[in-house]
Design a protein around this nucleic acid. Structure first.
Length: 435
RNA sequence: GGGCGGAUACUCAAGCGGCCAACGAGGGCAGACUGUAAAUCUGCUGGUUUCACCUACGGGGGUUCGAAUCCCUCUCCGCCCA
């Protein structure tokens, strides 16, 4: 096969992939395609150490790197252990609280465990993780001003959206610290370019300005061309940020969001978003997604698209074993057939739900249903508890209850657990305690 | 420093001496219909020992039979003059 044909294939690999998935918002140069086609390239994306884990809002950045790697290039994950100390003003309307050094480092390190699941850290195109504290810390202020700052025009810097918006509103200014952020991120790119031959930076659309800064810096100091590509800001069909729920964000680690909750989140995806999410978040091929789109259109009640989305995401993030457990929990709870489960299964379910405990002795005399559910995560007060029961929203172990119902020790399932359900989706496990 | 105006429940926002646990909107929760979706309709959205009481309209104090509503003061915010 002719070499130029092979190049042609490589060209289409990354950008076309991102494009049909709706993940390509902007590129810094039309020459990026040719650049990608002409060899194995090194690209990076940065992650803020604002927390010790990452949410599905950060997932896009990871996925961009994964696509890059799958297209035959080499990804670098940059933990912002250094830049995190400064704070990126992009997309923020107010000055941020500074992280402590310890926290930024701890978070950066803690986030690194997540990337194993999505990137390949072995082989010739092994992903690597870098922490920008390693090169930012040793950079002296004078060197930064003389060698790097000299190449930035304040006139351009204040024209940036992220800065301009903070200059307009009088009550929300911007500190010199955050104003300088873009210089640090630009320097990151320069450093990676020098140290790792990195020529591409990927990120969300709000990062475009920062990416361009880096490209300019590399051009001035190294006379090399480098590139950037951004993905659109992903939102739900009603304009909500993805992964934000009333109960908090959806995280990519089990210590923050249980696999069961994670599965449920995707399972509840609305029809309007299902296909879009399949393209954005999963690695399923185009035909597979088209088939699911067809299934959704013809048999929406079956929710094939949502089920596949949820399964794919949970498997990728938590592994096949956790997926199977989460699915089993999910099926048992929603079918109401919890009585058929054995003690081990119930224990697993209870572990995934908010829970509380009650003394067996108290239960032996019987507790009214209202008192029983008050104070659990299903009802905040007696008034509310009464209302829910009257509405027929509450069931115990899968059976609807009325106000007259009294909960007794006999209600306990194998393993000494009573399952409360309020409405369709709120569950609570009450453990019996013998002493 | 001086002069105004404002602070009400998750958010916005009425109320301006008793009929105020406080209009309305949004949000949230539940029910019905469905598909653990959306839309729609209905109900709820301070607490309790629920036809009553308690706690609440920025904090504190006062006037009054009675205050979110009037007065004083403190804190914070906005506008205007220096």
């Amino acid at each position: 096969m002719a070499p130029h044909l092979a190049h042609g294939t490589a060209t289409t690999a990354l950008l076309d992939e991102l494009s049909w998935r709706g993940m390509l918002h902007q590129t810094t140069s039309p020459d990026l395609a040719a650049h990608l086609a002409s060899g194995v390239r090194v690209g990076y994306a940065g992650f803020d150490p604002t927390s010790d884990s990452l949410t599905i809002g950060n997932f896009m950045g990871i996925k961009l790197l994964a696509h890059l790697q799958r297209a035959g290039h080499k990804p670098i994950v940059v933990s912002g252990g250094g830049t995190g100390l400064i704070g990126d003003p992009s997309g923020k309307s107010a000055e941020r609280q500074l992280l402590t050094r310890e926290l930024a480092e701890h978070n950066a390190r803690s986030q690194q465990r997540i990337f194993d699941r999505f990137l390949d850290f072995s082989g010739p195109r092994a992903a690597v993780i870098r922490n920008n504290i390693d090169w930012l810390e040793s950079m002296s202020y004078l060197d930064m001003l003389r060698d790097i700052g000299k190449h930035f025009s304040v006139n351009q810097m204040i024209a940036r959206d992220s800065v301009a918006s903070r200059l307009e509103g009088r009550e929300q200014g911007i500190s010199y610290t955050e104003f300088s952020y873009m210089i640090l991120q630009a320097y990151d790119f320069l450093h990676l370019h020098r140290a790792d031959g990195c020529t591409i930076q990927l990120g969300g659309s709000d990062q475009f300005g920062n990416i361009v800064s880096g490209i300019d810096l590399i051009r001035r100091l190294e006379q090399h061309e480098s590139f950037g590509a951004t993905c659109p800001l992903v939102t739900t069909s009603d304009g909500q940020k993805i992964g934000k729920t009333e109960k908090g964000a959806i995280w990519l680690t089990a210590d923050r969001t249980s696999p069961y909750r994670f599965l449920q989140y995707w399972l509840n995806t609305s029809d309007a978003d299902a296909v879009k999410f399949l393209r954005w978040f999963t690695f399923l091929e185009s035909d597979a997604i088209e088939a699911l789109a067809h299934a959704l259109a013809t048999e929406p009640g079956k929710r094939e698209a949502q089920k596949t989305l949820a399964a794919e995401m949970t498997r990728m993030t938590h592994g096949a074993t956790e997926l199977a457990r989460a699915q089993a929990t999910s099926e048992a709870l929603f079918s109401g057939l919890v009585k058929s489960l054995d003690a081990a299964q119930i224990a697993e379910i209870a572990a995934d739900l908010p829970s509380s405990s009650v003394a067996t002795t108290a239960l032996s005399q019987g507790i009214s249903i209202v008192d029983f559910i008050t104070g659990t995560s299903c009802a905040a007060s007696k008034r509310e508890a009464r209302e829910f029961v009257q509405n027929g929203a509450v069931s115990i172990n899968g059976e609807k209850v009325t106000l007259e119902c009294t909960v007794r020790a006999e209600h306990a399932l194998p393993g000494g657990v009573i399952l409360i359900r309020r409405g369709k989706k709120a569950y609570h496990a009450v453990r019996l305690q013998s002493s």
